[in-house]
Amino acid sequence: MKLLTLAEVDVESCAPDGLAAPIARPEAEQLAGLLKAIADPTRLQLISFINTSSGDESCACNLTAPLGLSQPTLSHHLKVLTDAGLIEREKRGTQAWYRVNQVRWQQLSKLFEV
């Protein structure tokens, strides 16, 4: 196995396309907010659990037990994700249902496309 030195690596060819041009301050602040919202293991688990649930949505009542969260902790994390626009909330009777905002998620993923 050959180790490459920094001089041998073409950084431009492996850098994500989303970083190929300077980012304006408002866009950088928006993207930083999204990254901050998902920079938590519990929130990443919530997003993956919701996205893989039946119908690509999940009732909040079904999220506490599988993730081992108390209701207040779950509510806090769901609010952070909702405020960032990464998940959407729909009230049905007394229950809140959540689904991943695919448009917002793709906006974030474009930052890392190669």
Rank of each mutant, 00 (worst) to 15 (best):
G93F: 08
G33Y: 03
A7N: 11
S53E: 03
E12Q: 13
V114Q: 13
R104M: 12
A15Q: 06
P16H: 09
R25F: 02
R92M: 10
K91G: 05
L63Q: 00
E113F: 08
S58M: 05
R43T: 05
A37W: 10
L44I: 12
T82Q: 05
G18S: 07
L108A: 03
N62L: 11
S13A: 15
E8G: 05
H76D: 05
A15V: 12
L46V: 03
W97K: 01
L111K: 06
L67H: 06
L67E: 01
A28P: 01
S109Q: 12
S48E: 06
D56A: 08
R104I: 07
C61Y: 12
A28K: 07
T52S: 05
C14W: 15
I50Y: 00
R89P: 01
P41M: 08
S109M: 13
N51F: 15
Q45W: 04
E29H: 07
V80H: 04
N51S: 15
V11P: 00
V100L: 13
V100W: 03
I87K: 00
W105T: 10
Q30R: 00
F112K: 00
Y98A: 10
N101R: 14
E90N: 11
E113A: 13
S70I: 12
D17T: 11
S58E: 02
S109T: 09
L108G: 03
E29T: 02
D10G: 05
A20G: 13
C61I: 09
P16M: 06
Q107F: 08
L67R: 01
V11T: 12
A7E: 14
K110R: 15
V103Q: 14
G93T: 13
N51H: 14
L35K: 00
I38G: 11
L69K: 09
A21D: 09
L34F: 05
K110E: 11
T64G: 00
S53A: 15
P41Y: 04
S48D: 08
R25W: 01
I23D: 04
F49K: 06
Y98S: 01
D83V: 08
A65I: 15
E29N: 02
A65Q: 15
S75G: 15
N62S: 14
T52R: 10
L19A: 06
I87C: 10
V114F: 03
P72W: 09
C14G: 04
R99A: 04
Q71L: 14
L108Y: 13
G68V: 11
V80Q: 07
K2Y: 09
A24Q: 07
T82Y: 05
E113S: 15
R25S: 06
L19D: 01
S48R: 07
K36L: 14
D17W: 04
